[in-house]
Nucleic acid binder design. Structure first.
Lengths: 230, 230
DNA sequence: CGAGGCCTTGACTGGAGTCAATTAGTGTGG
DNA sequence: CCACACTAATTGACTCCAGTCAAGGCCTCG
């Protein structure tokens, strides 16, 4: 069984609402599992018998059209929660973008446990509300922004979200390494890979960013970038 | 004070989780308020001191860009919940699309009440999870679908969601009256009003729909429409 | 060092946006 | 009930941004 008290996300995941006793019970229900980059944990439309906490790595939530077009509808980092409590089918696929490790629970058992632990449920509610806000802002981006604005917004949001894991003193992270490639950026922004690439090259030659390697981004002029994000 | 027991959304809103005693307490906290079509209840970015249940009418959730572009990120019907519990700023504007009536609560008081009533909180969680699923599917539409696919998907979803209020026997509603005009459809789909209009006239001349009046839609060939939605 | 995948770049196309004019509803007051 | 004004919706002509197709270059890893 798991020793949750030493879990790396102990203080950040929804489990942080639990007392040591409760943690012991939940610990018995969960099991750790590694997921290799590219592997899919949950398939869109399938019955999803599990929910999980992310311990390590980055995963994407994907909705696909019948002809293969993909839209990434969420990105999940360590301490985030995966899955759909109180619902049977997974409304999207969950795929690892990097090697990852998750702590998975049987959904029914988790639902029952949650129903008995209001604090846990409130944490989950808060998280879900936050996710919903984020999703809705992303809808604005997808529906109304130009390619340039999309890429700028994306870089700023990534700078924000990646600053959790290791950043410079003032908390504003301007250089970071993306955990995924160009096609994935395109799938997040609702663009093609070519358009995404062109926008990045343009920003580079305009001195807004530098691109030390394929996956590294350094924002050189944050003010102009924010201006550009619209 | 309010007599919640005779409320028209008594059995459908989140209040349905409450006992008569609890309902009495909540009833004292809420007050009914009418909102005229076009009036805004909550402004994006402002402190939002209230949450509410919708009793009557239809409202939109809007995210706007600095230059005025608007994206509708949600549509709210009777018995739906409005507002952002456990958060101060409203992440979007809430504006009535038709004359509406809502039952509003002080947010802090509601948060406290919710914290003491796990069943209510669970109802809220389930609703929020459903909203999140809907939002994510809408992200796929906004990011990856063509204008034609967008309009077809929209008409099918409206047929679904409006079938709650008065429909034909088998539950599949093919004719309905939209509670809003072309510009709003455009703002939902991330299109311009001209493109939206053109798509509709195209569908009409292809015999997929008829448009008896400005706001009435009749789906004449549902199979083809579903095909078109992608 | 070589193979393969990822990324960039270029030329071209097309779908949706823009601007502008017209038409069809809607509501108001005489 | 009709005439008028006003707004919403449609239609047309044109533009342009992003998509498509195709070629070439560059990492990265075996």
């Amino acid at each position: 069984m798991n020793d949750c008290s030493s879990c790396i996300v102990r203080n950040r995941a929804i489990c942080s609402s639990l007392t040591p006793d409760e943690l012991l019970i939940l610990g018995k229900m969960g099991r750790r599992q590694k997921v290799k980059a590219g592997h899919t944990l949950l398939w869109e439309g399938d019955d999803a018998p599990v929910v999980a906490n992310v311990l390590e790595g980055v995963l994407k939530l994907v909705v696909a059209a019948s002809d293969g077009r993909e839209q990434i509808v969420g990105i999940v980092f360590p301490s985030d929660f995966i899955g759909r409590p109180f619902g049977k089918e997974s409304p999207y696929s969950v795929t690892a973008m990097t090697d990852a490790e998750v702590c998975i629970f049987n959904r029914n058992a988790f639902d029952d446990f949650a129903s008995d632990h209001p604090d846990l449920q409130q944490k989950l509610l808060r998280r879900t509300l936050d996710e919903l806000d984020r999703a809705r802002h992303w809808m604005m981006l997808l529906g109304r922004k130009s390619a340039t604005e999309k890429v700028a917004s994306f870089l700023l949001e990534m700078a924000d979200r990646l600053s959790g894991q290791g950043c410079n003193a003032d908390g504003s992270l301007n250089g970071f390494e993306l955990p995924f490639g160009r096609q994935q950026i395109a799938d997040i922004l609702g663009l093609t890979i070519e358009t995404t690439s062109r926008q990045l090259t343009r920003m580079k030659s305009d001195g807004l960013v530098s691109l030390p390697s394929r996956r590294e981004i350094v924002i050189r002029n944050r003010a102009a970038m924010e201006e550009m994000a619209g």
